[in-house]
Computed example of a mutant assay.
Amino acid sequence: MEDEYNNLINKIPPGTSKARAFGRTYSVSRSDFNAGNSIKVYAEELGGTDFISFNYYITQSATLLKPCEMPQDKVMGFLRELELIADKD
């Protein structure tokens, strides 16, 4: 599961991006702290009420996915569905 967390979370670039998941569009913000060992992700549905929020910690012995007031299944479903939307110049 650790590798899956890393792969899914690292699809999200630091800063703010647009993405699609579950047929909806989200604004996704990723902030990295502690030399990339702590990651905060917050996604808000554009024009809707859904949101996703979690912290991800990388320690010497493990990785920890900590959803913020929502089930871990919701976070994992979002990460698996996530498709970034490229900005058009």
Rank of each mutant, 00 (worst) to 15 (best):
E81C: 02
C68I: 13
G15P: 12
K88Y: 14
I58E: 01
E4N: 02
Q72I: 06
D32P: 02
P13A: 07
V75K: 01
V41Y: 00
F33E: 08
Q72K: 15
V75A: 01
Y26R: 08
V28N: 03
N10P: 01
N10H: 05
L64G: 00
R80Y: 04
D32Q: 10
P13R: 09
G48S: 04
G77M: 04
Y5D: 08
L8I: 05
L82D: 05
I39Q: 02
A19D: 09
M70R: 05
Y57T: 07
E4G: 00
N55S: 12
E69I: 13
R24G: 00
E44D: 08
C68Q: 12
K11G: 06
S38W: 09
K11Q: 09
K66A: 07
A35N: 13
S31R: 15
Y42V: 13
N10R: 08
D89Q: 09
V41F: 00
F54L: 04
S53I: 00
Y26K: 08
R80I: 12
T49N: 11
K74N: 11
L8K: 07
A21N: 08
E45A: 08
S17A: 14
I39F: 03
S31L: 10
F22C: 02
N10K: 09
E44H: 13
T59Y: 15
D32S: 11
D50W: 09
F54K: 06
S38N: 10
K18C: 04
I9A: 00
T49L: 01
T16M: 07
T49Q: 09
E83N: 15
P71G: 14
V28I: 11
P71A: 13
N34M: 12
Q72Y: 06
R30H: 11
C68V: 14
T59K: 07
L8C: 04
A19W: 14
F51P: 00
